[in-house]
Amino acid sequence: MTLSTDNGKGLMLMIRLENVEKHFAGQPVVHPLSLTIDEGEFLTLLGPSGCGKTTILRMIAGFEQPTTGIIRLDGEDVTQLPPNKRNLNLVFQHYALFPHMTVEQNIQFGLKMKKVPAKEQRERIDEAIRLTQLTALAKRYPHQLSGGQQQRVAIARAIANKPKVLLLDEPLGALDLQLRKNLQAELKQLQRSLGITFVYVTHDQEEAMMMSDRIVIMNTGKVEQIGSPRDVYERPETLFAATFIGENNIFHEERLFTVRPEKVRVTPELADTRKTGIIQDIVYLGNVHKLVIHLENEPTSVTSVLDFTDQRDWSIGQKVGVHWNLQDEVTVGR
């Protein structure tokens, strides 16, 4: 393994985890993991709670020590460095704003600690405030702000330091759905314009799909799959990955394979079809409608998603044929 920071694609490597492993009280919470993250990449650690994603983030930040393994930041081994010596910043799940400081003082804190000259402090504070649209709130205290505004302050406080990497621990988890959607778009936009590497932790697969360049799907401390949103959706490698992201139909035959519901075709004719079944449920969702079909002679149901072009009349209890193309079958491991 070379220590080069070039990943061969012309992009610089920003973070490299080499066989990083973490045990708490003898129990493995993160199984040996090797991972590289490019400069300017938006990488998401996705998984259910307790899967080890936050522990990985905290190890990169320096709040947890890996039991074994090495963490490199921009080529430098930072495994033994305390958090205040690492050139990256963490946005905490509950923001962790300093309650006795104004918005401006919160943002200034990191610059003051790093003894940035006063003039540059001013410029960086102003820039961070402008980028996060906090100009009108600069003199307020955190308790005078809404959740979404506090979230913006937490991000402004982090980016003012111009970190090489921004780590975000479920930063939108405490916000309601509509606000979360808006902030997702804002965050993605911010990441593009700053060009900073983002490592983002979430349990929300839709959020991960929408924002990330690459997704690391995790389950019980192990990586299930690493890939672009398209990769993990179209070519899931494990059963967990296939079912955690989006809806999927699972088939246990000679092998284990999946077929996405939008790849499943339904016909009223029963001849020359792959399978036959009875319509169990029809779900109308506006832009699409879903048929749930109970297969004949098999203990499984198949979901088919049909779009607006499908004008046929379906009825519950109707016997139908079910088709899909061979190339839409995705073989998965367990």
């Binding site: 930040a61 320096g62 709040f63 305390p82 958090p83 205040n84 910043n89 963490l90 905490f92 509950h94 962790a96 704003l97 300093f98 309650p99 006795h100 804190f109 990191g110 600690m113 790093k114 406080r157 982090a158 330091n161």
Partner: peptide
């Protein structure tokens, strides 16, 4: 502990964290 971790993350040493975050809180 989050406030102190945040201070530490923003570059404050243990003493600075105590002086500027823990003690005022």
């Amino acid at each position: 502990k989050q406030l102190e971790e945040a201070a530490n993350d923003l570059g404050a040493s243990s003493w600075q964290t105590f002086r500027f975050v823990t003690l005022p809180s």
